[in-house]
Design a protein around this nucleic acid. Structure first.
Lengths: 230, 230
DNA sequence: GTTTTCATTATCCCAATGGATAGTGAATTG
DNA sequence: CAATTCACTATCCATTGGGATAATGAAAAC
């Protein structure tokens, strides 16, 4: 809320740009810029999620992205803005990776859809552990950004889950407890093994980052949560 | 592993100290030192868990504890050592808060013991959200400390849970899935609402930090996980 | 009561950090 | 091809961070 947030400026739109009709010219320069931009974003995601906002250094991020740290300022102006863009990128990528049969509501049997969702989501968490990590970093910080992220990205997902949970409760596939608790528990159960992968490996010797373990965990989540669902 | 870790030096043992037989003299000086020591520890816990290892500043920690930052060096020598002690403190406090009927294994009916444990643990997570936060920070960092903590504090707890989970599976109170997954899911389910309390409040409007919500969540966890358990 | 210990502060040091400014040279534009 | 734009580098600056050292003064030891 502090400064003017533009958040999801869609890749190209800088410069005096394409006359009117849009599209058309990726222009070597813009291509390069886009390339650096995403290199920085990827690097930032890793650093922010691992070291936290203040722990991550712009110079380290820049170095990993193969640019000078001034470049970050050129593109994102401030560290805060880079952080915001990183969060925005996370959710957009998640959205884009989500197959349509999951995002489309209300089709098919509820338990079957639950299973499909869980399997997809567990895979997502395994692929991108930075997502959960970054969100936790942000939540813990309790900065003013939190309200913005919650409003913009999280509330929607939540609202989207709730009726689905209630439907499963109505059909007796889930116990009747506060749906909010259920959403949290499911989410947590899917994320945890990958969020803490290193710790779990050290403590139990089990490596969750294998195809087999990922699938098994997804099955486990489904079996634990679903009643009479097979 | 880097430097010599003494970890749980039990409060007094400094100076040429008590001749031989131990105990006896709290001595004004030692009392004061102990007081400062725990003030620093408490402050450090908050800062480390919120900002991460590198994000937390010794000066800020010291200020909150009402001392000069040099004091920290006097007591803990390095930031790393303070971090270790903070982690050690967490687990010792957890141990000390755990009622005996929970730590004593094998007594009573398994489902009932599950319920008891969950209710205690959910309360613990609500009281001390820094615990989960700090452990996540540590796990994410993947520093060499992780192996040490896992070895010293986490492995044991895990080993302790597993047979219990298996017993519940044998009696049909839990589905037959990898017990490691179960432990993770249960843990995550208990921690999540408090780990992310601010975010959840912002996204759903529900405040989990009330006596009622805490109890409800514990009930929810029990109902979700336990079969035929009432 | 004098000496010694040591919890605590007051400073100093230097590396690192976020940010700011002035280039620089290839791509773009006319 | 000359003029201009702009992705990107090179530096500079003030602040902060962790760590080190010397000083202080009340408590402890003798």
């Amino acid at each position: 809320m502090t400064s003017t947030v533009s958040a999801s400026e869609p890749a190209q739109s800088r410069g005096k740009a394409v006359p009117a009709g849009g599209r058309a010219k990726p222009s070597i320069r813009q291509q390069r810029l886009e390339h650096t931009r995403s290199a920085i974003l990827a690097s930032a995601l890793g650093h922010f999620s691992r070291r936290g906002f203040e722990g991550a250094s712009l110079r380290d991020i820049a170095q990993e992205a193969g640019v000078q740290h001034g470049m970050i300022r050129h593109i994102y102006q401030t560290k805060e803005e880079l952080w915001r863009q990183a969060i925005g990128f996370l959710f957009e990528r998640m959205e884009s990776e989500m197959p349509p049969e999951i995002s489309d509501l209300g089709q098919g049997e509820a338990p079957e859809r639950f299973r499909t969702f869980i399997h997809w989501y567990v895979g997502y968490c395994a692929r991108h552990p930075e997502h959960a990590r970054l969100m936790i970093q942000q939540s813990i910080l309790e900065g003013p950004e939190l309200a913005w992220t919650a409003e913009r990205y999280i509330r929607g997902r939540h609202q989207w889950h709730l009726p689905f949970i209630e439907k499963l409760q109505d059909s007796g596939h889930l116990p009747r407890v506060d749906p909010i608790s259920v959403v949290l528990m499911v989410t947590a159960a899917c994320q945890m093994p990958f969020l803490l992968a290193p710790e779990i490996l050290a403590a139990t010797g089990k490596n969750f980052l294998t195809q087999a373990a990922i699938k098994d965990h997804a099955d486990a989540v489904t079996k634990i949560f679903l009643r009479n669902g097979g």
